[in-house]
Design a protein around this nucleic acid. Sequence first.
DNA 1: TTGTAAGCGTTATCAT
DNA 2: ATGATAACGCTTACAA
Lengths: 338, 338
Amino acid sequence: MTRPTSRDVAHAAGVSQATVSLVLAGKWRGRVSERTATHVRETADALGYRPNLAARNLRLGSTRTALLVVPALTNEFFARVYTGAAKVAAGHGFGVVLYLSPDGTGPARDPFASARTALDGIIASSMATDALEGIRGEDQDLPLVMLDSDPTAGGASAYVNIALADGMTAVTTHLLDQGHRHFLHLASAVDSWTFDIRAAALARTLGPGTTLRTVRAPLTITDACAAMERALADHTGPATARPTAVVCDDDILAVGACKAARRLGLALPEDLSVTGFDDMALATAVEPELTTVRIPAERVGEDGMRALLAVLEGHAWTAPPLPVELVVRGSTAPPTAR
Amino acid sequence: MTRPTSRDVAHAAGVSQATVSLVLAGKWRGRVSERTATHVRETADALGYRPNLAARNLRLGSTRTALLVVPALTNEFFARVYTGAAKVAAGHGFGVVLYLSPDGTGPARDPFASARTALDGIIASSMATDALEGIRGEDQDLPLVMLDSDPTAGGASAYVNIALADGMTAVTTHLLDQGHRHFLHLASAVDSWTFDIRAAALARTLGPGTTLRTVRAPLTITDACAAMERALADHTGPATARPTAVVCDDDILAVGACKAARRLGLALPEDLSVTGFDDMALATAVEPELTTVRIPAERVGEDGMRALLAVLEGHAWTAPPLPVELVVRGSTAPPTAR
DNA sequence: TTGTAAGCGTTATCAT
DNA sequence: ATGATAACGCTTACAA
């Protein structure tokens, strides 16, 4: 037996298709008698009727589907963003389909070919500005919500931002208070606004009498470790002042930095303090646990979906940046005099 | 201006809608002249025509969409499975929509309500057998591919399996060869076939003259650490033989076990050997790096999608279990005599 | 209060 | 080689 249609339900209940549609859509107030309404619902249940979404979408012209564009899922941050977005979407009868932007944050190539669904809107997380163009070029009038991206770039329907600068200022201040003066910034190699803003906040917070050196690495533990080993190797001689604190753009980078330090025989946190960013599961997996900045990743996804829903209903959507929290753990300590 | 339809393209090109459809579907061999075919394609490009998928789905009765059911995305294993499935799907013009089964592996409640798409098939990963019923109950005739699940349970259209028993046997043998005799099995608290088979292989491989104790914990680092601390606390006195090797169902559990050991003042791997399972990024994040069993997670997703595609084309699909690989790192060593 | 009918954009079957 | 036409299952005026 094939799946029952609304016509089958109508026939079985002895009413018209229109009545079935009205009842099941819940908009029958004063248009269908209470008695027939319940009767229709019962027969629909009995037949196990579920509406054909393709037909509904065709008729309605909307699919109640959002596309979430993220660089990768193996990064726990984006997995959490998806989880949050999907949760809010489900509560509103929406679906979320993922698109993994191929080259990390490079221009997204035809997201519609792979996410084979008609879309009501797009949510993009931590994308480079030029990647935005790649998406927007396809469909100029599709609502676009940007998460964790440059709000001054324009072009999007709404922005969900995070108080990243506050977070970076907080860790930096924490390290300064502990007496650190020589900093190494282990930055992400991908050129993205979300990382630029971290660098800016770090540089701004460091006052006079401090030194700052920047090293970039791809967002993997091994890459970060290698980059860090090279960077610290420059400081083996007593000529230049070795940094006593390493500020990382990300927990993954921080873990790599810790590995490198250990390989070079440095004790953590006595010889070197290391800080992360994001506070993912990784941060408490390692020893010592990472001092880091907690980002409410699920909340980012939730607000992204809320913003999209608002835009779709014609409302503008704005909200203050999501607050972050400094989490002090064992990977930071005052520098030991030597 | 609204999006152009095939009718608009037909009108602009001066041909009928049917011709447009044939040309764009690529099935016009000997039915449409070469000249008009290229003309149609050009006008379609010029107008920026893209077919309405809702209409196509309605007409064709299939959506070219698969539902992938996983317990959670924050577990890197499932993120990799998704990535593999999505990659293969994209190559065949298919989409993959995710459904996060709420309670880890509990019965999935109406996956269709949240993944609001008509589906061509379902791929379920590492689900408990009763969760299978929850899904299948909705649509009896929908193709179902089970990943990493009991192939003898029946009911699915195809199974993709992993040589987990081989992997567990390999780690166990590795530990036995190193001289370990007293084992602790840190098992997953979720009751799933994928973990049952690990336990069975472990018990089977341990010969006479060995002891085995089992402790269960939820799949988080903190839970694993707590469970492990309780378990090892029982062995503080010299009365009972403290285990020298902890075999874990998962890298996450293993990391938790390492933390617990360190808190109790045990040195790794001298005082205690710990092994993981999966070989996720976590395994090399910690110090010492985990001896573990590498599972080709992306490959699992890829084969799952391939199996579904085969089933949809009416072919049966079978393949040998995916091979796994023992990766020996620093978390295991011969037990030190005391 | 309920039924009739048109149309959403596509593909497939028939004529021409 | 091409065009007219009928579905696919649903929603929503409008008619009764």
